[in-house]
Amino acid sequence: MDMSEKITVDVRDVAKIYGNQTEALRGVSLVIEKGEMVSIIGQSGSGKTTLLNIIGGLDKPSKGAVYINGIDIAKLSRNELAKFRRENIGFVFQQFHLILYLTALENVMLAQYFHSMADEEEAKHALEAVGLGHRVGHLPSQLSSGEQQRVCIARALINEPKLLLADEPTGNLDQANSKNIMELFKKLHQQQNITIILVTHDPSIAETAKRTIKVTDGTISQGSV
């Protein structure tokens, strides 16, 4: 799969049904162009995380398909998908998902390890970029939730992804830190032309993106092009 530099995301009529009742997504179609920065807003339980997971190939749609640069990612094998993720996608999870017994630095290095090779210096720089240069040796339990969130962001960016999927990346940050992170995202977006999909509750954060998509009850109610 040639991802060259940029990534186009084409979501076609995707539905996701959990079990056989919960319809988390009901026919979502959406195109995100190369190098676009898009924010997704919506109420809790509207299906934002589900959509993000399906785009990132963590979850499979019950119906419809996601094409990334023209390729249906549901057709990739488990290992191909893993390779695709580590080479192209950075995830910022809503619940951080840091490994509790590894330090901030090691958590970042783990992503490097799966990608290619752990590089301590590079990992340190990534933590410095999110303002955590002084916390590299701390375990997640010794960090505030805002700090944990920033470790999570450093880990998402460490392998220079072409598509950043961020689920509430500023949910636990104060205004100053939120601003810093958003500046960082903007910079990446502008300088490296990364495609960014950003889930948020905060309208002021959503405004950072040129385009905002609103999800209501598993469908797109606004902004789907």
Partner: peptide
């Protein structure tokens, strides 16, 4: 399982 899921999400293959 959480840790394994996380590793997979950030790109670990089955072999890793």
């Amino acid at each position: 399982r959480l840790e394994i899921a996380l590793m997979k999400a950030i790109g670990a293959e089955d072999g890793q």
